[in-house]
């Protein structure tokens, strides 16, 4: 299904949670689709089954999946609200980039113009979709 980077510094448990989240958000795993069982995934990825169990539990508390006793874990219906955690991350990145842009001499007005342009593009895209 997917692979993990065992050489990465990131704990395997975190990698698993992130990877599955990504797949759910991007509809690679669809609503009510069954996730691979702990046993199967442990064998495929050669990692500790307890780690997978822990990742599944975490995804369940975060509302990404639900489990049916004796059947396994399934993808939950996601309400696409503002994901505050994601938003925070993007904001932090923007802050860094804007600071860099200003360092290289970009003015506030230029930034504002850029934002307007991006917004216009977004609106135009919406209209194109409708036609």
């Amino acid at each position: 299904m997917f692979d993990l980077d065992v050489r990465s510094r990131k704990p395997i448990y975190e990698q698993l949670v992130d990877k599955l989240k990504e797949m759910i958000i991007n509809d690679v795993l669809q609503v009510d689709e069954k996730l691979p069982s702990v046993r199967v995934l442990a064998q495929q990825l050669t990692i500790n089954p307890n780690t997978i169990q822990k990742a599944y539990r975490e995804l369940e508390t975060q509302g990404y999946i639900y489990s049916v006793k004796g059947k396994g874990s399934f993808v939950n219906q996601l309400v696409k609200t503002e994901n505050s955690e994601e938003l925070q991350k993007v904001k932090a990145q923007l802050e860094k980039l804007i600071a860099e842009a200003m360092f290289f001499g970009m003015t506030k007005d230029e930034l504002q113009a850029l934002i307007n342009e991006i917004e216009d593009q977004g609106k135009r895209g919406d209209r194109d979709d409708r036609q």
């Binding site: 702990v38 064998q43 050669t46 307890n50």
Partner: peptide, 14 residues
């Protein structure tokens, strides 16, 4: 090594 680890993990899971 990979083969053996895989066997071990299976036994733990099963």
């Amino acid at each position: 090594r990979k083969k053996i680890k895989n066997l071990l993990v299976q036994d733990v899971a099963e």
